Simulated scan of single mutants.
Amino acid sequence: MNPGAQTPDGPAAQPLRSDAERNRGRIIAAARTVFARDGLHASMASVAREASVGIATMFRRFPTKEELVDAVFADRMGAYADAVTVALDDPDPWTGFVGYIEAACAMQAADSGFADVLTTTFPTAKVLERRRNEAYAAMVELIGRAKAAGRLREDFDTSDLVLLHMATAGVVSATGDAAPDAWRRVAALFVQAFEAPARAPLPASPGHDALYRAMLRAEQPPPVPRESGEGG
């Protein structure tokens, strides 16, 4: 097919010039470093500085932060989805479920950016969200198997996994290098709480719609405090 030829989905993307491709690669590599260190609230300007490119070059390659996040983390979301597949392949549903939790939390602990990705949704990051949805569908199946085996408490809900990831992201952010393995205790506490038989009923789930709104809000940077006496 000729470069730029029409495809069933519309015009094909023009191939990048070699210098533009190098800049794109440098930006992605820099974003991996910055997001892993500082999380997703890191600015596009800080990524541009890490990549040693101008901010105009940054926005030519990635007009929005979501496009950059998609490029940086699509493969990691793929690895996350693969972890669910590995869990489904385990002949013991509970062992597979626990192994998935440990693997997913370890991925969060290893990369602050990915810790944020698992608790944030990016509607326009198509590849990232497609892999997230694949992982979710597989996880629903795994949860059903673990419940059928009598090992996962019956009132467990998929939203509990979102809460687990939110808790892990908070612990990873709060402990940093001072206590890098603290997340392991948190994950173990959650696993023990998830296991059947349940010792007591759980409070009502916050609900998928509420958590989705929370994940959308998590995409926004924290507000900058206003100076005392600052005008509107």
Rank of each mutant, 00 (worst) to 15 (best):
residue 113 G to N: 00
residue 114 F to R: 07
residue 115 A to Q: 09
residue 115 A to F: 10
residue 115 A to T: 02
residue 116 D to L: 02
residue 117 V to F: 06
residue 118 L to Y: 02
residue 121 T to S: 06
residue 121 T to N: 06
residue 124 T to G: 09
residue 126 K to N: 13
residue 126 K to T: 08
residue 127 V to I: 04
residue 127 V to D: 03
residue 129 E to R: 06
residue 131 R to K: 11
residue 133 N to I: 10
residue 134 E to D: 13
residue 136 Y to M: 14
residue 136 Y to F: 08
residue 137 A to K: 15
residue 138 A to T: 06
residue 139 M to N: 12
residue 139 M to E: 11
residue 139 M to Y: 11
residue 140 V to E: 15
residue 140 V to G: 11
residue 141 E to K: 12
residue 142 L to R: 02
residue 145 R to H: 09
residue 145 R to Y: 08
residue 145 R to Q: 11
residue 146 A to W: 05
residue 147 K to Y: 10
residue 148 A to P: 06
residue 149 A to I: 07
residue 151 R to S: 15
residue 151 R to C: 11
residue 154 E to W: 11
residue 156 F to V: 12
residue 158 T to K: 15
residue 159 S to R: 13
residue 159 S to P: 10
residue 161 L to Q: 08
residue 162 V to Q: 15
residue 165 H to M: 14
residue 166 M to K: 02
residue 167 A to G: 15
residue 171 V to N: 05
residue 174 A to G: 00
residue 174 A to R: 01
residue 174 A to Q: 01
residue 175 T to H: 07
residue 175 T to C: 08
residue 175 T to E: 15
residue 178 A to I: 13
residue 178 A to M: 08
residue 180 P to T: 05
residue 182 A to T: 07
residue 182 A to E: 05
residue 184 R to Y: 09
residue 184 R to I: 10
residue 185 R to E: 14
residue 187 A to E: 00
residue 188 A to T: 13
residue 188 A to G: 10
residue 188 A to E: 14
residue 190 F to E: 11
residue 193 A to H: 14
residue 194 F to R: 05
residue 194 F to Y: 08
residue 195 E to W: 04
residue 195 E to I: 04
residue 196 A to M: 05
residue 197 P to N: 01
residue 198 A to Q: 03
residue 202 L to A: 11
residue 205 S to Q: 02
residue 205 S to A: 07
residue 205 S to T: 04
residue 206 P to C: 03
residue 209 D to R: 07
residue 210 A to Q: 07
residue 211 L to D: 02
residue 211 L to C: 00
residue 212 Y to A: 12
residue 215 M to V: 09
